[in-house]
């Protein structure tokens, strides 16, 4: 009798675990075969020598990592960090007020505003970046508009500013959406309570709204930072030949220099930076 009663929950939990495994296995298999295995193969090459005409020679060496700390390459990493950080900060400064206003719109307008935020994603990414070339180029739309007011011309295209502009344009929605979700979830009575207790609108924002939407701030920042940091399409098209980001460098190592081991080492550096940020983000989010 007793054992029968006891056996039941065990069976059920085993069944549940089996069910979870069945549901998860397709995704899991896909990730293992097409991401984890290639990633492991790629990263294993970081400790080997490059072949003379590309490929990998399986001889142990540490030279890839020695090259990584070369000021030339470190500079590229630092530049990429700088550009991605700047993009994230501006996205936050623009995205927070946007999300805040959308969250307080009437229901119908909320939907319209959110659709408008996601709308650019329906157009091909490359076309949108090309459009920025047209906008920013010497005789482009921005400069002709400035001319009307007797300003300009601005030499924006092929500068870091253009890269930041392009990244910002592409990834701003990824900042707005998590922020919107966080702000929308906030009980409006908390703001009223703060006001009732004597706080000004600014104090209410600083003491109540911002701390409670911090998880959204962190998620949005990560969503913008991660694709910006490793990006190579936008720097390539809007940054010209002067500026290079770590994404371009990695691509060049694989496709132009044919130095797979060093390309893999750079990729590893990029992954390490992102993982550190991810861990830091989840740590902060849990404490908040």
């Amino acid at each position: 009798m007793k054992s029968e009663v006891k056996a039941r929950p065990v069976n059920r939990s085993r069944g549940r675990r089996l069910g979870a495994f069945v549901f998860l296995s397709p995704g899991l298999a896909y990730l293992v075969v097409f991401m984890l295995v290639p990633l492991a193969l790629l990263l294993s090459t970081t400790v080997f020598r490059r072949g003379r005409f590309g490929g990998v020679v399986y001889e142990f060496t540490a030279e890839n990592f020695e090259r990584l700390v070369d000021p030339l390459y470190l500079g590229v990493l630092v530049d990429s960090l700088k550009i991605a950080t700047l993009t994230t900060l501006i996205a936050l400064l623009i995205g927070y007020p946007t999300a805040y206003v959308i969250a307080r719109l009437p229901r119908k307008w909320k939907t319209i505003a959110l659709v408008a935020i996601v709308l650019p994603f329906w157009t091909n990414f490359l076309i949108r970046v090309y459009a920025w070339i047209m906008l920013l180029s010497g005789p482009g739309l921005v400069n002709s508009a400035l001319k009307v007011f007797g300003l300009g011309p601005l030499e924006v295209l092929y500068t870091e500013g253009a890269i930041v502009t392009g990244l910002l344009y592409s990834y701003l929605p990824l900042m707005v959406l998590p922020l919107y979700a966080a702000i929308d979830r906030l009980d409006p009575q908390l703001r009223e309570a703060s006001s009732n207790l004597g706080a000004s609108a600014f104090t209410t924002f600083r003491k109540v709204t911002l701390p409670l939407t911090m998880p959204g701030v962190l998620t949005g920042s990560l969503f913008v930072f991660v694709p910006s940091f490793g990006n190579f399409v936008i720097p390539e098209m809007l940054g010209g030949s002067k500026s290079i980001m770590v994404g371009n460098l990695i691509r060049d190592q694989f496709l132009k220099a044919r130095d797979w081991p060093f390309g893999a080492t750079l990729a590893l550096a990029l992954i390490v930076v992102l993982v550190v940020l991810l861990v830091a983000q989840s740590w902060v989010a849990r404490r908040a």
């Binding site: 309570a193 009732n196 004597g198 706080a199």
Partner: peptide, 18 residues
């Protein structure tokens, strides 16, 4: 509202969760 010598206790209490 923040300059009135009046306190309001909300139905939901509206305590600051953080």
């Amino acid at each position: 509202p923040n300059r009135r010598p009046i306190s309001l206790m909300f139905q939901s209490y509206a305590l600051f969760p953080h």
